[in-house]
Structures are given as structure tokens and as C-alpha cells.
Design a protein around this nucleic acid. Structure first.
Lengths: 112, 112
DNA sequence: GGTTGACATTCTGATATCGGCATGTATTCT
DNA sequence: AGAATACATGCCGATATCAGAATGTCAACC
């Protein structure tokens, strides 16, 4: 067995830097493939294929207008990642520092 | 050119589900390899190799005690992911809904 | 010193991936 | 209808990956 498919889930999909660049480029707006190609500096087939992966994991939605296809980011698709990362929040942020302070205080209480 | 190395960055490293499971298992504590193996149900070499990847991207730290190696998660390593995902926050949370409401209101003003 | 225990590393084989190039498919325009 | 535009797909080769099994390393214990 080899590595998991990039289309397996969102975590695999955003593993590729080009895909992240594409998402960054689209941002909160809506862009046609040609516009993305012009901005990110990848070839058109390359962009199309990455968009396909992003589509399959639900990270982008697409609507056709004439011969153009406009892509927009589906923010909700990123929530699983945010949720997962947040479970480790206590390991880095100030809330943890405060928790740490609290524990130190409790320890001092105990030592008295 | 093939896919990027899993050790290229944190985004690639967490692409693997087994690696995420291992991180979840360690949690906010500190576990020896054997304990991880017993919990996640993977083979020992499998776990060791995944831990190596996680070490190389800085997602876990390791300290030896006798013939045991205790691993702990380095939460700070996850910050780049959190930061990146947050840039799309406007696309899913209530703050965006409120912005959306505001836009609808403005639109209605205009229609009058 | 030899054995056991706890991990790490190496080698192998199968597989999905990514980029490049060429080609296919619609849709618009003349 | 034919040409051009905007994308999507298919085929290819090179490569890194992951699991499995065997082996290596090093500390602890008898």
C-alpha cells in the first residue's frame, strides 16, 4: 500500500503547496480558471487538475457561465482541519499559559 | 516530479491519518513508543517511522530515559496550519454571516 | 558476558502522485 | 459552418510513499 489518495480527505488535499496557493489566490472571491493560471504561474492543465482534487474533497465549488468556470472556496470544508488543530490549542496559546499559571498557583497553595 | 516529501512541511506530515492518530494519542501528555503502539494498534516499526517524520517537521519532541523514548507533541508546530486555515475563517463563521446580513441591509437601502 | 527489552533503521515491492504534453469538449463569435 | 476561446482529460515517466519483515543499536538485568 502506498500513500493515501490526495482525494481521500481535506488533510491530504491541502498537503500540496500549489493547491494551497490556488486557494489563497481565489481567497474570498470567485475566479475563473484562466485568472488563477495567470496569477499563480502554473500551467493550465496543472491548475485544472488541482482544482479537480479540491472539488472532490469539497474545498471549492464551481459554476459555469458560458465557457468560463468560476471557482470559489468552500470555507466549511476547512472546518475539520481547524477543529482538529484546535484540539492541540492548549499546547501553544496563552490560554495554556494562564492554565499553567493557575497550576503554579494551586501548587503554591498546596505548599503552604 | 512526484508528490512532495512528507517531511517537506507540517501540512504534508499531517496528511497521513495514522500520523494524526498518533498525535491524538499522545495528546497533551508524554508517551513511550510502546504505549503508542499498544494504543493505536499499528506495528512498532510503523509507529517508529511515523514518529520520525513527525520529528523531522518538528511536530513532536523526544527525550530518552533509559531504553525508553518519551514523545510529546510540540503544539507550536501546528500554528502554521491554524494560521493558514484562519485566513479563510470569514468564509464559514458567524462573523461572515453578520457581514452577509450587513450587505443585505445595504442592498435593501439601495433598493429604496 | 550474554540475554532480554525498547526502539530505530534498512530493504523490498506495490502504488498513487505530480508535471508535461497532447488531445478532447463545449461555447462563443464571425 | 468553421475558427477561436476556455477548460478538462488522458497518457506518460519519474519519484516519494507506505507497510511488512528482518535486522541493527543500545541500555538494563542476571
Amino acid at each position: 500500500m502506498a500513500r493515501n489518495r490526495t482525494t481521500a480527505d481535506v488533510f491530504n488535499a491541502i498537503g500540496d503547496e500549489h493547491r494551497r496557493t490556488i486557494l489563497d489566490t481565489i481567497g474570498t472571491g470567485e475566479l475563473a480558471v484562466g485568472e488563477i493560471v495567470a496569477t499563480v504561474g502554473l500551467t493550465q492543465p496543472q491548475v485544472s487538475k488541482h482544482l479537480k482534487v479540491l472539488r472532490e474533497v469539497g474545498l471549492v465549488h464551481c459554476n459555469r457561465t458560458g465557457r468560463h468556470r468560476h471557482y470559489r472556496v468552500n470555507g466549511a470544508g476547512l472546518r475539520p482541519i481547524e477543529t482538529w488543530v484546535r484540539t492541540f490549542e492548549a499546547l501553544w496559546n496563552e490560554r495554556y499559559d494562564r492554565l499553567d499559571d493557575l497550576l503554579v498557583e494551586l501548587q503554591q497553595e498546596e505548599d503552604r
